[in-house]
């Protein structure tokens, strides 16, 4: 028996909007720790890891570890039917091939049930090793989203270079080149507007903008994004989900031939 009640149902709506275009089908894993997902995109270039900790739910009942295969497009369709202020409850019985999403309006005057078919998904679970990153950039998520969008109108790839002075995003295409430098800036009034760079050594890596743009669909989940970079390692683009967990995107850097 599984029953998860999330008062801030909009979080789950935003999570699905963030990942549904990157991943088609995925297993949601439910355990005492929380509600989680790890999945690769169809070309196995990017990986998404989601964790919503059990403590973040108003009610969290998971009698035994359960893996539920879902089509994320279909799940997003169902969650779109929940209001932004609705409380969302996920329910599944042991051995059942369906999951039920219950939406309650804040005033309890409208209660909806949506039952969705589960699917069997053969998914590979990857071990993500702990890594010491050469550079960690923390910046406003809206700024990062804007940069990825702007650069993708000029080129297909972005070179992210971090030095003590700042982080540089560069691209080149048929019409020309673009460089955007964000300097370290931790003296702003609001912490969510700061750009903070922790660096042990300079790093410069090239990534496909198509994937970066897809990751920025998680922007509504957090005002801050963290980019963790190391030579020859996938970048980690992390959006923290307030008091609940995170959504992390991993993208393999392009390699010069």
């Amino acid at each position: 028996m599984l029953e998860l009640r999330l008062v801030q149902g909009s979080l789950l709506k935003k999570v699905l909007e963030a990942i549904k275009d990157l991943v088609n089908d995925a297993n949601f894993d439910c355990s005492a720790t929380g509600f989680s997902l790890q999945a690769m995109d169809s070309s196995h270039v990017a990986l998404v890891a989601l964790l919503l900790r059990s403590e973040g739910f108003e009610h969290y009942r998971c009698d035994r570890n359960l893996s539920m295969g879902m089509n994320l497009g279909n799940m997003a369709k169902m969650l779109k039917c929940a209001g932004n202020d609705d409380i969302i409850t996920l329910k599944a019985d042991d051995g059942s091939d369906t999951v039920t999403f219950m939406f309650e309006s804040p005033t309890q005057d409208k209660i909806s049930d949506f039952e969705m078919k589960l699917m069997d998904i053969d998914s590979e679970h990857l071990g993500i090793p702990e890594a010491e990153y050469h550079a960690i950039v923390r910046m406003p998520s809206s700024e990062f989203g804007r940069i990825c969008k702007d650069l993708s109108s000029i080129g297909d790839t972005v070179v992210i270079s971090v030095t003590k002075e700042g982080v540089k995003f560069s691209t080149r295409g048929d019409i020309g080149t673009a460089n955007i430098v964000c300097r370290q800036n931790n003296t702003v009034d609001k912490p969510e507007e700061a750009t903070i760079i922790e660096m042990t050594e300079p790093v410069s890596l090239t990534f496909a903008l198509r994937y970066m743009n897809s990751f920025t669909k998680a922007t509504p989940l957090s005002s801050i994004v963290t980019l963790s970079l190391s030579s020859d390692l996938p970048v980690v683009v992390e959006y923290k989900i307030a008091e609940m967990g995170y959504i992390r995107f991993y993208l393999a850097p392009k390699i010069e031939e």
């Binding site: 270039v45 679970h125 990857l126 090793p129 390699i255 010069e256 031939e257």
Partner: peptide, 14 residues
């Protein structure tokens, strides 16, 4: 030119 490696090149199956 540049090549796009897969994520499985960096992270192994468990």
């Amino acid at each position: 030119g540049s090549k796009q490696p897969t994520i499985t090149r960096f992270f192994s199956k468990v």
